[in-house]
């Protein structure tokens, strides 16, 4: 079984370090470690063969099912999404880009209050709210103003939406032309085709 085809690990075979890193803290750790051991010595074809409990339950939404706690690698965050637009020649309204999410991950990031306060005035709030909803996070209020920055609860939510939700695979779609800017391995490819320049 190819790990990549299975779509749950997202990285080619053999990256045992990152697999270990991601499993830290889950209750299936020892079970998985055993499987990884079998996998490494060649007795099993997949490190996850017996980790049935990690599969998403049917009650979860497709997006929520794809969201997983991810400790290894960082991908495209909503702060980046909030800064980007479609710059195709002739497009007047290329912001905000719509998000087509194939794979979303969550990652804990160190909380920096000053940075959040700096970013708050630069961020297009509405675009951030919509983007976080597309990724399955609905906690952000519809509108926000600077006085809310005094609330720790609000800052935590803002922090989570801005920095901890990561699009790993999918696309950013130009709202005017429908042109897709692919996001693969968390890297948005914003390069234009020759006739879009």
């Amino acid at each position: 079984m190819d790990l990549k085809e299975e779509g749950r690990w997202g990285e080619p075979k053999g990256s045992s370090v990152s697999i270990l890193a991601r499993l830290e803290g889950t209750e299936e750790r020892s079970c998985c470690l055993f499987n990884i051991f079998l996998y490494l010595v060649g007795l099993s074809t997949s490190p996850s063969a017996f980790c049935l409990r990690r599969r998403p339950t049917p009650s979860q939404t497709p997006i929520a099912a794809a969201v997983q706690l991810h400790r290894g690698v960082v991908r495209m965050r909503l702060l980046t999404h909030n800064m980007l637009s479609s710059n195709i020649k002739g497009v007047t309204n290329g912001f905000p880009l719509l998000i087509e999410a194939v794979k979303v991950v969550e990652k804990e990031v160190d909380f920096n209050e000053d940075f959040l306060k700096n970013m708050f005035v630069k961020v297009e709030w509405k675009a951030l709210v919509e983007a976080s909803r597309t990724l399955g996070y609905t906690e952000l209020p519809e509108s926000a103003e600077a006085s809310m920055l005094d609330s720790d609860e609000f800052l935590r939510k803002f922090h989570h939406a801005l920095l901890e939700l990561h699009l790993e695979d999918g696309a950013l779609v130009c709202p005017e032309t429908g042109r897709k800017f692919p996001v693969s391995k968390g890297i948005p490819n914003m390069l234009l085709h020759e006739d879009e320049v």
Partner: peptide
């Protein structure tokens, strides 16, 4: 980790028009 890495052209940067002083 970096906040973000992206593929973009410095000649045609993809930043939204209202974005400045960031």
């Amino acid at each position: 980790m970096p906040i973000s890495l992206l593929r973009a052209d410095n000649n045609l940067p993809p930043w939204r028009s209202g974005l400045k002083e960031i």
